[in-house]
Nucleic acid binder design. Structure first.
Lengths: 361, 361
DNA sequence: AGTCTTGCTGGAACTGGTTCCAGACCTTAC
DNA sequence: GTAAGGTCTGGAACCAGTTCCAGCAAGACT
């Protein structure tokens, strides 16, 4: 195969402009160390020769200024992660970086060496760094580590023992957030409070832990509605709603794993003629878009998704500049957003009162 | 900025496997010239070190195996060019090439040096070659030539003097196709035949030329309905339909520049209570999808769009392998597709007969 | 005048692959 | 025995940029 035509290189430009290659390179990259007259001469030579720098050669000894947002084991990019991605993108743009979105699917038990990477990660030199989100099992982290790309991760998606906190990650404190939310519900006079969420997922497990702590410290009895069947689906909500209503004593308030499920419960209750919050109170988690589509709007815990994304990007850039690891775990604060789904009960009276003031929006 | 971590290079692999770098490279690229035992040793070293070849370095001394389908001055990728693109893509895939789609906008009078290229063409080394389609003015070709990338073009989109046939191009013979189509209509007994199409576009101009030749050689009087106003829009069809019906003598058949306009005419006629083909016959051009959506389906000239795309890709690959130009112009045959929009008139009788046999589908 | 600083410049060395050539080794043929 | 041919292999040279360092000139300061 013959060589590609037009090998007009930086050396040709240098010759024509009567300067060294270093000078041409400095002009190309807007370096300041070039006098005005030389710069003009070089620019003239460039346009006269129709010189175009070679994309690959350029990226060989310097960074590509691309990072990859790698989403694991998710069929869809739903609103929660989409917001994080948006935060990453916003921050990246302001730092002159490109974000490439990629997905990966792997099993919890797949040996690290056998996990199949997306094409862009099979070769090195495409992206400078990685933001991990989705479902992060230890085998996955191990494999990512083995390809020696700087990475940061969304900590709340991390499965596995606590020692994995050593990874560079951005997260929020789900335990504390749910503790506070539960405390708020208790303060509203509720005693029978249930928790709904599949605790095999770490994000639900820590929320559940916070709920338990709040219940215990108030001397109340925690109740967990768990289920091995698919989470988040509307089937799951139907099933959970049925179970909740059959409990005895029937809970007056429910702490729900996330807004999606809370929405499902609300719809199921509504179908059964149960009113929220008059008959039963609901508290969600995440503050997704769907929280405002409910009637009344959902009281929930706001997770600063964009801020998480931005912080991830900032942290990744830090790592790029000094790969000499400075293990970090940044925690983004959450915020209880009180809207309309928690009813105020008169203290010490477990029975609902029709005179309860409505919650503020 | 510190260097990117993990500089595990091909030389590290070579050292560990106790072979030369050339051998590792041969293994990586599936070269045959390596003994089985050596190959195994190298593969083991690669996986032990977690070596990933460097994307950019790899593409420096070899081709990228990407080509660019560059579409000029079109807001949308409509069905005609989409089919050509599909042909290019199909052929590219079978040849192990990637197709990158890019668009460009420029003015007919923009000086070549000032035409702004899409980012992927600003640097060299992204794509090996170019397929041009859309609106091709001489200044554009000149600029493309100046960046020294092998290119081929869809010839029928080329504006400018005939000497531009020198470019490597794939095209179809619109003149001949329309000549034959017009001859067919004449054979059906029509004498008053008009042509509709904006002849400032070369593709319409050549079709018009074929129409004229057929009319002249049959001793008939050619009639052109031209208009400076936007082509292809439904407004244009409305306007054209009104004009056609007011002509005296009123044409019994119309050769239309393309199927899109033919569809517009058909709809306008229908609104005015004029029946196709009983009251007026129509012949389109291109054989786009829309031809079959008409009732009756449109008699038209089939352009082998996919085949044009495939031929473009093949020709481009030829050029890549031997850039030493072998100027070529490949002509893809067209085909008159007789469906239901041309009425058979009894010869020598310009007035329509109700007993005319219906055209075959 | 001598030294220091600063700004600009040239070019060698480097990036990490591929390619090519010469040479080693092993058959097979005469 | 040796010439010819084939397969396999090592490594230098190359691709086209960037980076770095030394060198030079001019101006500033002692």
């Amino acid at each position: 195969m013959e060589p590609v035509p037009n090998p007009i290189t930086i050396r040709d430009v240098a010759r024509v402009a009567c300067v060294g290659v270093g000078t041409v390179s400095r002009v190309l990259n807007g370096g300041r160390q070039v006098s005005e007259s030389t710069r003009e001469r070089v620019k003239a030579a460039i346009s006269r020769l129709g010189f175009r720098p070679h994309a690959q050669a350029r990226r060989m000894s310097r960074r590509t200024e691309m990072v990859c947002f790698l989403m694991s084991n998710r069929e869809f990019l739903h609103s929660f992660h989409a917001r994080i991605l948006k935060g990453v993108e916003t921050c990246a743009r302001s730092l002159g970086q490109q974000v490439v979105f990629a997905v990966i699917h792997y099993g919890e038990k797949t040996p690290p060496g056998q996990i199949v990477l997306p094409p862009i990660l099979k070769e090195r030199g495409w992206v400078d760094g990685l933001v991990l989100a989705g479902t992060i099992y230890p085998n996955f982290v191990e494999h990512i580590q083995s390809i020696h790309v700087p990475y940061v991760m969304f900590g709340n998606n991390l499965f596995g023992p606590k020692h994995m906190l050593k990874y560079d990650q951005v997260s929020f404190d789900g335990e504390k957030a749910e503790f506070e939310a539960t405390q708020f519900v208790i303060e509203q006079g509720h005693h029978e409070i249930a928790f709904v969420g599949e605790t095999s997922f770490p994000w639900f497990r820590e929320r559940h832990a916070g709920y338990r702590r709040a219940m215990k410290s108030a001397g109340l009895n925690p109740v967990l509605l768990n289920s091995q069947q698919g989470n988040g689906s509307s089937d799951y909500a139907e099933w959970a709603a049925r179970n909740l209503l059959q409990m005895s004593p029937r809970p007056t308030a429910i702490m729900v794993g996330n807004d999606e499920i809370a929405f499902g419960l609300w719809r199921s209750f509504r179908k059964s003629g149960i009113n929220v919050p008059d008959d039963i109170s609901l508290v969600g988690f995440d503050d997704r878009d769907i929280a405002l589509l409910m009637d009344p709007p959902l009281t929930t815990v706001r997770v600063q998704k964009e801020e998480i994304g931005e912080t991830l990007m900032k942290m990744l850039l830090d790592k790029l500049h000094q790969p000499s690891k400075h293990l970090a775990r940044q925690v983004i604060p959450t915020q209880l957003i009180i809207r309309g789904t928690v009813k105020h009960l008169y203290s010490n009276s477990p029975s609902a009162s029709l005179l309860a003031p409505s919650a503020n929006i």
